[in-house]
Design a protein around this nucleic acid. Sequence first.
DNA 1: ATCAATTTGGTAATATTGCTACATTGATGA
DNA 2: TCATCAATGTAGCAATATTACCAAATTGAT
Lengths: 294, 294
Amino acid sequence: MELREPDVQSGRNILEVTRTLRANLRKSDRKVADVLLESPQRILNATVAETAELADVSQPTVIRFCAAIGCEGFQDLKIRLAQSLALGTPATHSAITDDDTPAAVASKIFDYTISSLDWARHALDMEQMNAAVALILKATHLEFFGFGASAIVAQDLQQKFPLFGIPCNATMDSHQQLMAASMMKPGSVAVAISNTGQTLSIVELARLAREQGAKVISIAGSTQTALFDYSDVVINVETLDNTDIFTPTTSRIAALVAADILSTLVARQLGTPHNQRLVRMKRYLSQMRRNEAF
Amino acid sequence: MELREPDVQSGRNILEVTRTLRANLRKSDRKVADVLLESPQRILNATVAETAELADVSQPTVIRFCAAIGCEGFQDLKIRLAQSLALGTPATHSAITDDDTPAAVASKIFDYTISSLDWARHALDMEQMNAAVALILKATHLEFFGFGASAIVAQDLQQKFPLFGIPCNATMDSHQQLMAASMMKPGSVAVAISNTGQTLSIVELARLAREQGAKVISIAGSTQTALFDYSDVVINVETLDNTDIFTPTTSRIAALVAADILSTLVARQLGTPHNQRLVRMKRYLSQMRRNEAF
DNA sequence: ATCAATTTGGTAATATTGCTACATTGATGA
DNA sequence: TCATCAATGTAGCAATATTACCAAATTGAT
């Protein structure tokens, strides 16, 4: 699968790797590791000599450290470090503290969201995604289920899929959801969204839909969930979870991206005539935006 | 403002910068630029000599090229390039084509979303954000307005702010919105969300809210919008816009991140007692998830 | 406790790489 | 057509990274 190139996957995030290996490093190498973890940005603009001085070790030690954490040399380290930093300081480093300035908080939230998306990208299983597209293309009607943050994702999907001419629906009222699920039939497809995959009502809706002969696609944060048993396809949207109170809910954002991918793939399969309709629809919507009053 | 360090702001995304400047470059420099744009990954692992050979120019030309696009030297170029590549191939390079595999489509959508968030991060004006926090802290009641994709952002905010004990509301029905806006009064704060900032109904709601003496915070994709005239604070959530039909709507995702930042900053200001309540609330919600049936 | 054996870390030499000064060529305009 | 200036290459230099080698420290077995 193209998304899982070894070079991207293996040597991911020097800072994480360093943190992991730190304990088994030589004493002097550890000094270098500490400087790296402490002020990566500084190393990025430093030479071997400067780094050696910062860590209070000799220059060759710095080189040996590079080898120890699996880099080709100092240059290679810098390049990998640059890439790691671009994705934002990894989540473990970016806990929001009380004395962060508002700008720092903003920066950390962006970092966290971006790393989280990067994580989700690598965890995404394209086979399941393709299977979901296939199911949707054959569907006579779609139903989106989600609570809380996942309700937002359901609503987002509900805004997209009518554009493809596929009849669909998303209700937030749990009684109406229950009715909708029990009225499903072979040919219908239910999309159940739940980050935990444990939300009882959602599992119940999936079970019900399936009992009626409908297919179930679930979008969840893990494949090992209660929802799994009642799903034909599971789109896995893994995110970095963090128990910190201040941590934003990145799962909904990753799920929205998954929704983008799903809808884009469906749109492509529907081919050109449909896409032209889509263009017209987009144009119409933007006109409406300008003219519409009450 | 920490988020706008010149070195980060100015030389962002080498590939984009190179593409923009390409036309005004010296002939030989352009050769280097073309190699860079063509196979950036290759340059990343190359020396000056190798790059010179690839571009069929002399080594000093490569160095001069670095200076021409605003880099300190070749090393600096490589580091910036590494960062640019880590954020995914920039949007302009990642137009989704008909013969992309599904995996490639997924990859491009992730890339596009991540670059877009990175863009939004640098465009975010923290002074306005802080002003918004100040307004919200003094508010007696909040009202969130948004249509279409922005309705999702409104709903997201509506899920968060009650946790802070601030009475708030978000309706999607335009008549109820109209009523809500006209019932606002001094002390109320309206949050108007619109990517274009031109959506007539939203502008109208903002005007109305303000007429009643309420403060208006707008979340928009640009500061130069019709909404601006009726806003006390404008949170600018710029995204890379792209007219391609397949392009996902990243504006809503960026707006959600802005919402995360806003709510986190408010939570911090409210201080510890409130945060404890927040923890209790989170715990309660996750319990409900497990036990809740119909 | 003592002596190999092995690991670790520093010094100094070397190779590589990036950069600058200067010369040459090509282009532009009076 | 010549003078002037910009553009590009050649050659040498400076910096930077890397390797070879040796000394010190650590470990383990007798």
